[in-house]
């Protein structure tokens, strides 16, 4: 079957996955559920389909840093990074766009299409002010 949505305008999205057997959420996607042992088949042919869940919205900033040691290709003075926890318990790393970050503060996660250091596009999370 052709996935016609691939030809439409894509909305940036960062996806977590849900185990079809026990319902546990995972990010990033594992190949086996660490709760019930259900396996994931990225091609969706052999094992049950794992539905995806978009990561975004309000979350809590668990850790953050301003980094000046960036990889080649990201030629900016610094970038802010953080680790957040979502209300569903999932955690994620991403870029932080908050003027005065404080550990424990509430931030808003949104998905954006950005470039990695090699110029390759990817959909990633940006944590901004609520």
């Amino acid at each position: 079957m052709i996935d016609f949505s691939a030809y439409g305008v894509k909305t940036p999205e960062v996806k977590a996955v849900k185990c079809p057997s026990c319902g546990k959420l995972h990010y990033p996607a594992p190949m086996i559920c660490n709760k019930c042992g259900e396996r994931r088949d990225p091609s969706g042919v052999i094992f049950k389909h794992w539905e995806t869940v978009s990561l975004s919205g309000e979350c809590t900033l668990l850790a953050w840093t301003r980094v000046y040691a960036l990889p080649d290709g990201l030629d900016m003075q610094y970038l802010l990074f953080g680790i957040v926890e979502f209300p569903n318990g999932l955690r994620a790393s991403g870029r932080l766009e908050v003027d005065q970050p404080v550990t424990g503060m509430k931030v808003n996660a949104r998905a954006e299409t950005m470039d990695n250091s090699k110029g390759k596009e990817f959909d990633g999370l940006i944590f901004g002010d609520l």
Binding site: V67, A69, P71, L74, A92, S93, G94, K120
Partner: peptide
Amino acid sequence: AEYNYGLT
């Protein structure tokens, strides 16, 4: 989930 962002 990590490298893409420029995390080091």
